[in-house]
Design a protein around this nucleic acid. Structure first.
Lengths: 151, 151
DNA sequence: TATTGTTATACTCTATAACTATA
DNA sequence: TATAGTTATAGAGTATAACAATA
């Protein structure tokens, strides 16, 4: 197996493990990974239209309607009228929604710390830099491919 | 942001990009990521019972029934009677299924090669080793946590 | 005309529980 | 009694297309 494939496999395997682990705290609650992801995006961007959320999450507007419906029912977000555009609605985090995001953030840090506990600091930096380089590069590659396809 | 979090984020971001990219060739076909994953496992293990597939994929037996139904309908796998246990069925790859796996394997290699194209060989090896170490460690951590929970 | 969000419809992945046939 | 696979049922994520209200 080439080093290239070892890297690809390592990333996918690790991501799968992490994803299962992240989903666990939501068991028995109304939250799911997709809904939590929306909260996370919303916290990063501030109050947003559903269109903006759809774009940010690379998902259809219809999908956002469903996620927001569920999160509104569970009290994590609220729909408020857009101040200037009466077609649009602004989705905002409620206090409960903010609490959940805060908790997710601390879980993420704990998880990350546990993950790299056996790596020496220089190794950590090298690994982080390598991954970021690959992700940046990959994103650029996909963007180029998408443009070529449009032509 | 700590290096630990940079690593976690890098892994998740990269996995997301790769996953979207891997799903693309299936558009317009009857194949999906889950079905393709079953083909991949089946190729690695050889003819398997549905129970074995469920365990290997960490998924319910019922789920396997559905995936195999679809893959059987599309001609990628066949159900054959188990030679000694009449309760069980053996799932096997058809020629079409094998062709698809071969194609996926070469796409994976191409994708991996593109991904790391700008990394020098020593960097590649370090990155691969780092990721494998983290994944192994994480898997062990989860196994321990699961045992503790059972007590 | 174009855009925002929703209704209508459909497919897929996933799970648990009950059931049948077999071990 | 236990196991393999299926039927029954249900929730969740996702998409496209048509539509109403508004820009």
């Amino acid at each position: 197996m080439t080093d290239a494939v070892r890297i690809l496999d390592g990333v996918m395997r690790l991501a799968d493990l992490v994803q299962r682990d992240m989903a666990e705290p939501f068991a028995g609650t109304s939250l799911t990974m997709s809904r939590a992801a929306l909260l996370w995006v919303l916290d990063a961007t501030g109050p947003s239209t559903q269109q903006a959320l759809a774009t940010a999450m690379s998902v259809s507007p219809r999908n956002i309607t469903g996620l927001v419906d569920a999160l509104e029912a569970s009290g994590h977000v609220a729909r408020t009228p857009h101040p200037t555009d009466r077609r649009a609605t602004l989705v905002t985090l409620t206090e409960l929604g903010r609490d959940v995001v805060t908790q997710m953030a601390s879980q993420r840090e704990q998880m990350a710390a546990d993950l790299v506990a056996e790596l020496a600091p220089p190794e950590r930096d090298a690994l982080a830099a390598g991954l970021e380089k690959l992700a940046d590069r990959y994103e650029a590659m996909l963007a180029v491919a998408r443009e070529e396809e449009e032509r």
